[in-house]
């Protein structure tokens, strides 16, 4: 965060010194882009706030806690796809799951779909990629997340017993 604002501040000052007009134009571009996408952001925030209430940490722990690998990967991919949470919430939760003995393949399935597949962020994605390309990206990413989970499971010996 501090690094981000330091870089932003330094870039802004350098830009101001180099060319005031261009800098002003850059700020206008930034503002315009933000305003255009703000409605989609607010819809996403509404969806996130409701979903986080329905899909709680306890629920995720309960459903993933006693599932075997194959079924667990599927359930984890479902939860990971429909929810959205920042890393500082997600990884501690993954740590809890690991502590409870949940297979690493299942944890990988949850965390990678969480990051790659976004049902809640789709209103935003659709604005940038369009409906069809957005759906296609999510589908491809889901396959990719499952592949990653299976390979991780293989490395941890999740499927041998």
């Amino acid at each position: 965060m501090i690094i981000l604002y330091t870089i932003c501040g330094a870039a802004l000052i350098a830009s101001l010194i180099a060319d005031r007009k261009k800098t002003l134009k850059a700020l206008k571009v930034a503002f315009k882009k933000f305003i255009k996408i703000a409605p989609a952001f607010s819809i996403m925030l509404i969806l996130v706030s409701v979903f986080l209430h329905i899909v709680t940490d306890e629920m995720i722990i309960k459903y993933l806690g006693d599932a075997n690998s194959a079924r667990g990967i599927g359930i984890a991919a479902f939860f990971g796809s429909i929810t959205m949470m920042p890393g500082f919430v997600a990884f501690p939760l993954c740590g809890i799951l690991a502590g409870k003995g949940v297979p690493y393949s299942v944890i990988a399935s949850f965390s990678t779909t969480l990051m790659l597949v976004g049902v809640i962020s789709f209103p935003i994605e659709q604005k940038y990629l369009g409906m069809k390309a957005g759906l296609l990206r999510n589908a491809v990413c889901l396959v990719m997340a499952l592949t990653i989970s299976l390979i991780i499971g293989f490395f941890y010996g999740d499927f041998t017993s």
Partner: peptide, 8 residues
Amino acid sequence: ASFILIGL
């Protein structure tokens, strides 16, 4: 900050 950097 992100959008300002995008603008620049």
